[in-house]
């Protein structure tokens, strides 16, 4: 592209890198900013309801008796734990036996 350089852009050497002499903004500046609604934008983080597992997980389906299923679900609800935690507690009993 061949075009004439607009006046004013032919030499920009009068703009030299230089430390600005401006003093740092007064502490009042922050208060004024907040009064105008310029506030710290907190990065939004999702609050996890449960602790994530540290170990790998595996998913399987099992056909069990209604009687055992009901007992297991009720126990998990009573203890306010997930099925995963309930299953872990049952497995611990095998290890201890």
């Amino acid at each position: 592209m061949n075009r004439p350089v607009p006046a004013g852009l032919t030499g920009l050497s009068d703009f030299r890198p230089a430390q600005a002499s401006e003093p740092q903004p007064a502490p009042a500046a922050r208060a004024i900013a907040e009064a105008h609604g310029f506030v710290e934008r907190n990065p939004q983080t999702i609050r996890k309801r449960r602790k994530p597992t540290e170990e790998p997980t595996y998913s399987f389906t099992a056909r069990v008796s209604v009687r055992s299923a009901n007992a297991f679900i009720e126990w998990c609800e009573r203890e306010r734990m997930s099925y995963r935690e309930g299953f872990d507690r049952l497995v611990e009993k095998i290890e201890k036996a």
């Binding site: 703009f15 890198p17 230089a18 401006e22 310029f38 506030v39 710290e40």
Partner: peptide
Amino acid sequence: KAEAARQQFVIADLEGTASLMVA
């Protein structure tokens, strides 16, 4: 300010919200 001491021009593209960073 540090970049202004090094470069001829410094340009800042700010976020489209009223944040402390913008202020």
